[in-house]
Design a protein around this nucleic acid. Structure first.
Lengths: 231, 231
DNA sequence: TAGATTGTTAATCGATTAACAATC
DNA sequence: TAGATTGTTAATCGATTAACAATC
């Protein structure tokens, strides 16, 4: 089939290697992932940048520009094949790379994260949790065993662990992170608030400051109030 | 004191009203809040934009530019008074406005959020949780009572509730949000993944897609891998 | 006063949008 | 073929950085 050929060809184009993709584009990719997943769930087979732009409230130009950073996934006069585009976006984002993860800290946040379907949906496999508290060590959370921090080293040496989700107290974050880097972990999802960037050249750190989002909301609420008061 | 006078004067300048503050600046404000809080904890009294820029890994120019959106909080030749600047940033961000909040959904996420010191630190007071499950209704989480969704309306009519934290299943998000808007809630912190923006002109929505951050990390991990493989 | 550092304007850089030729 | 829609270049817009005069 003609279509298949086009897709076969485009497959080679996937251009992340030297890719000079701007941070702004990268930040938008997960959003494409979500919308495309939804379109598939609704049985949608094809979509144009114009239609998708209405759905996502962005310009069609931006969508075409963004996707073209990674290769020509569409077809003139036709638009985009939803399944194919979704597959491509998954590929770009590393869904299905089979990343494995451990969670450091089995407190409220750690336990809530482990129970969240988010990891499964994105192909990240949580294999263990670690904590120092005897109260939780030996228990399981959503079928994930909670091990002692002492066991971290031997565990990581025996199994391939790609990622660590850091939810321990801020005070212990640096020590834990340094150990993780030594053990060859490639990515740290950092919820501790401790600055860990530039820790090591071969470890990526993604910081989550959930409170920042709460503050942005408070700011907007204030701004709205003030706007309303004025009138 | 001379210093006090300056500050008194500057107080009037706080310029959020008509303020045309760009989204980029607003997104950075919580970060200033965090660093200033830390500086105060360390007993720091004054700081220059140059020093702060080293600490935060941004340019001094950006710091001065950002802060000047809201007024002149510094002093030539001296820098910024840490306590005063912190107070100003708090004021801008609505910390200490005394916002009250309810949490819709007492699942894993809702319970983890309620137990997080984040709300207290930012002056947001959680007054109740709501759920439909008889298993949790009547219980308390971190001293916050879990009420039935049936009670939402009467509760909001009796008490001032400014904000709702939406952690219920995606399917119930729209209905809940519409009810909240009707009850006069001014801000929705939306964890459901359901699009709720443009719901109402007098309600602000802040969306949290925690999974997007996970995907960004996966992307960066892949990108790093590929870079390393190349060499 | 001299030195330091802000507030602010101007220059640069990057990201978004518009436009259109290429092509399915 | 004609219509539709992409890929891509050029124009616009916004955000960041540099520079410096104002001033503490």
């Amino acid at each position: 089939m003609e279509k298949e050929e086009l897709h076969e060809e485009a497959l080679g184009k996937l251009n992340i290697k030297g890719a000079n993709v701007s941070p702004a584009v990268i930040k938008r990719l997960p959003r494409y992932f979500r919308y495309l997943r939804e379109l598939i769930r609704n049985g949608r087979m094809r979509i144009s940048s114009g239609e998708l732009s209405e759905l996502m409230h962005v310009t069609a130009s931006q969508i075409r520009q963004d996707l073209n950073c990674f290769g020509g996934f569409g077809q003139q006069g036709y638009g985009y094949n939803v399944n194919y585009l979704y597959a491509k976006v998954c590929e770009i984002l590393g869904v299905g790379e089979g990343f494995s993860a451990i969670v450091i800290g089995a407190g409220n946040l750690g336990r809530a994260l482990v129970r969240n379907p988010m990891f499964e949906k994105r192909g990240v496999d949580i294999v263990a949790m670690f904590d120092v508290s005897p109260e939780v060590i030996g228990r399981t959370v959503a079928d994930i065993p909670v091990l002692a921090m002492d066991q971290l080293e031997s565990f990581c040496r025996e199994r391939k662990v790609d990622m660590a989700v850091l939810t321990c107290p801020k005070e212990n974050a640096l020590e834990a992170a340094e150990q993780l880097v030594t053990l060859g972990i490639k990515g740290i999802w950092n919820f501790t608030g401790k600055e860990l960037d530039h820790l090591a050249p071969h470890t990526v750190v993604e910081n989550v400051h959930i409170g920042d989002s709460l503050m942005t909301l408070c700011y907007e609420m204030r701004a709205l109030e003030e706007k309303d008061d004025q009138k």
